[in-house]
Amino acid sequence: MKHIVKIMTLLMAISSFWIGLLEMLVVPPNYTWVLPLYFIVLVGCYGLLMVGVGLMRFPTCPQEAGLLQQVVFPLTLMVSLL
């Protein structure tokens, strides 16, 4: 199954649940109407959180750059003579 179909199926399931809530009046309609907005905000917050956490925990390796330079510098002098 194409990936877009999986995502659309998931969105349709969520939409069906929302329409069900609207129809069955389990939750007051004025609350139910704003649920999609909450959902969009929630997805946005999730994205921002993931980017933020990813940025904070971004693995860096300055020591690798130093090690590479140690190897590269003398070799560069040799290569430049080729």
Partner: peptide
């Protein structure tokens, strides 16, 4: 590059932000 033991050197904050954003988008979709 993005697990323990891996890493990146030489990227500024904007490049890291772009990379993380692109990765989250791709992982989610």
């Amino acid at each position: 590059r993005y697990v323990s033991g891996g890493g990146v050197h030489g990227w500024n904050l904007m490049r890291k932000l772009t990379s993380r954003g692109a990765n989250v988008l791709a992982q989610t979709l």
